[in-house]
């Protein structure tokens, strides 16, 4: 393989990994406080459309990104309200929001299909670093949001391990009842985390429609929200390994291009399936390895449990 192809593939892999990485960081925030948000796919999709429409209608990328954040948060807030206020089942609420988003974006976005984005996320060549031969080209000449995507898990990691806020978040995920008697307001914090997680997902979606794809397609996320869920499992509910998980997913998605460039005679359908199949295989192998080490499960102990103070 020649170096140019490798460089180009690395660059593509990083770009392809970024939306899922941002969304996975958002999902990690929600799952850290114990809320399993299957609505992440919906939040991503809604964010993708909202960002695209706002950018194209106003011609201002920044407005588009802000709206993507807001709409992603709003979609996740439906999950939060259903689960926290009305004690609905988390899986049902998440799926419902995802289905609602698929339907609504398909309908509302019908008029925008295949329109190209008025403005896409600008590419920013990092000074000095982008001049490194090959590596610089691969990693440091990316759309701005790609750098942000890598920064997200790092910031979340710092917050979770080094701040009072992060400690309280982890505590809620371990035991909402204990957090409550320790003086943490559980449900408010949970709702906020789910909404913020949704905002991340919305931004991740916008990076698709305003970045790597650059146009609106129905169901543009194509399951990347679910990939984000898998990346969280891959990372064993820790922030920094999210980056590795997302890069793995991105690399698998880029293999098709590589194969085409090298003239391999393997069906393109196989390469379409590869990121999903590969993610699945990795997650399964990790789960298998975990069963061989008898230890505490890596996920937050109260993941999936709702909390009502009166039931204490």
């Amino acid at each position: 393989m020649d170096l140019d192809l490798l460089t180009a593939s690395l660059a593509t892999a990083l770009l392809a990994a970024s939306p899922a990485l941002i969304a996975a960081t958002g999902e990690l925030i929600a799952e850290t406080v114990g809320v399993y948000n299957l609505g992440i796919e919906g939040a991503m999709l809604s964010g993708a459309l909202a960002g695209f429409v706002a950018t194209n209608e106003t011609g201002t990328l920044l407005l588009g990104l802000l709206l993507a954040l807001a709409v992603g948060a709003a979609a996740a807030s439906i999950v939060a309200i259903a689960v926290i206020v009305f004690d609905a089942d988390m899986v049902v609420a998440g799926l419902a929001v995802t289905f609602l988003s698929i339907g609504l974006t398909g309908w509302l976005g019908a008029g925008y299909v295949r329109e190209t984005a008025a403005e896409t996320v600008p590419i920013w060549n990092l000074p000095v670093l982008s001049d490194i031969p090959y590596l610089g080209e691969a990693l440091f000449r990316q759309p701005v949001l790609v750098y942000l995507a890598v920064l997200c898990p790092i910031v979340v990691w710092l917050i979770l391990t080094r701040t009072r806020l992060g400690l309280n978040l982890r505590a809620i995920g371990e035991s909402p009842h204990a957090a409550d008697v320790s003086g943490v307001s559980v449900n408010v914090t949970r709702a906020a985390c789910v909404a913020i997680g949704g905002a991340f997902a919305g931004l991740g979606g916008a990076l698709l429609s305003l970045g790597s794809v650059g146009s609106w397609l129905p169901n543009i996320t194509n399951g990347e929200g679910y990939i984000a869920l898998a990346i969280v499992i891959f990372a064993s509910w820790r922030a920094l390994p999210l980056i590795a998980g997302a890069l793995l997913f991105g690399a698998l998605g880029t293999l098709g291009n590589v194969a085409q460039a090298l003239g391999w005679s393997v069906s393109a359908d196989f390469f379409f399936a590869l990121p999903y199949l590969g993610t699945l295989a990795v997650v399964a192998v990790l789960a298998w390895l975990r069963t061989r080490r008898a230890a505490r499960p890596p996920w937050p102990a109260a993941l999936g449990e709702t909390f009502q103070r009166s039931a204490a």
Binding site: N168, R170, A171, E174, S175, A179, V181, G183, V184
Partner: peptide, 15 residues
């Protein structure tokens, strides 16, 4: 009402 997965120090500091 403890956080089993956290350390004693962390347990003392929550909230």
């Amino acid at each position: 009402q403890l956080f089993e997965g956290l350390t004693v120090a962390e347990n003392l500091h929550v909230g």
